[in-house]
Structure formats: C-alpha cells, structure tokens
C-alpha cells in the first residue's frame, strides 16, 4: 500500500476475470472442433439448402461467456415475389442460439 493506491484501483482483477473465461473456452476446445464454429457451418449449410442468400448479407456474432455462450446468425433472404418495378424485398432470418458449455473441471489431464 502507498499513497497512490488510495486513489487508483488496479486493473489486475479485470485481467484475471478475462483470462479465466478465455482459458475455460480454450481448454474445452483442445483436441476437439470448436462447437460454435461447427454449429455456424451447419446452420448456414441447412439454410442454403432451402433458400439462396448472399454470403455478404450474413452477420454472425459470438459472445463467449463464463457459463453461457451465444451464437447469433442474422441472414437477409431476398423475397421471391417481387412487385414489378419496385426494389426487391428482403426477409430477415435471425437465429439465436444459447450454448451452455457442459464444462468439466479442468485438471491438466491426469497430471
């Protein structure tokens, strides 16, 4: 403790929390494909079997949280019916997936 610390709060607790969340995910992912990545590929493949969409009009966001991760897929799909002379209409398909990671306690394998 010193004079300056009275006026300043340290950033170490933030570093610690960020690391704990990040490493929990990275340890889960060791040796197996990224679950959210696989889901993303499958969802896009499933949709593209039924409708065609512009890959540039797909927005995918991910948020890896401590206990729940979310994967959001937002796809703009052009309407088939089009009023003549007007601009194409778009439907938006939004998929929100919450993935609760069934994370086992990490123990360095058996070591």
């Amino acid at each position: 403790m010193n004079l300056l610390s009275i006026f300043r709060r340290g950033s170490a607790p933030v570093a610690r929390e960020r690391l704990q969340i990040l490493l929990a995910h990275e340890r889960d992912a060791r040796g197996q494909p990224d679950l959210l990545g696989v889901l993303r590929e499958d969802i896009l493949a499933a949709i593209s079997r039924h409708v065609s969409f512009d890959p540039d009009k797909v927005q995918i966001t991910m948020d890896r949280g401590a206990t729940v991760s979310t994967l959001a897929v937002d796809i703009e799909i052009p309407n088939r019916r089009r009023a003549s002379g007007s601009l194409p209409h778009y439907n938006r398909l939004m998929i929100d997936a919450e993935v609760t990671s069934a994370r086992s306690q990490w123990t360095n394998g058996l070591c």
């Binding site: 403790m1 010193n2 300056l4 610390s5 300043r8 709060r9 340290g10 950033s11 170490a12 607790p13 570093a15 610690r16 690391l19 704990q20 490493l23 990490w106 123990t107 360095n108």
Partner: peptide
C-alpha cells in the same frame, strides 16, 4: 509493489488460473 497495488496479476491469480 505493482501486484500489491492491483496493477499486476498476483502470484495467487496466476497459480489459480494455471493450477
């Protein structure tokens, strides 16, 4: 002194994370 001021990860933090 940086760890004591909460500016640097403490020994306990690193040990807990890396186990």
């Amino acid at each position: 002194w940086r760890a004591a001021r909460g500016e640097m990860l403490s020994i306990e933090d690193v040990l807990e994370i890396l186990s």
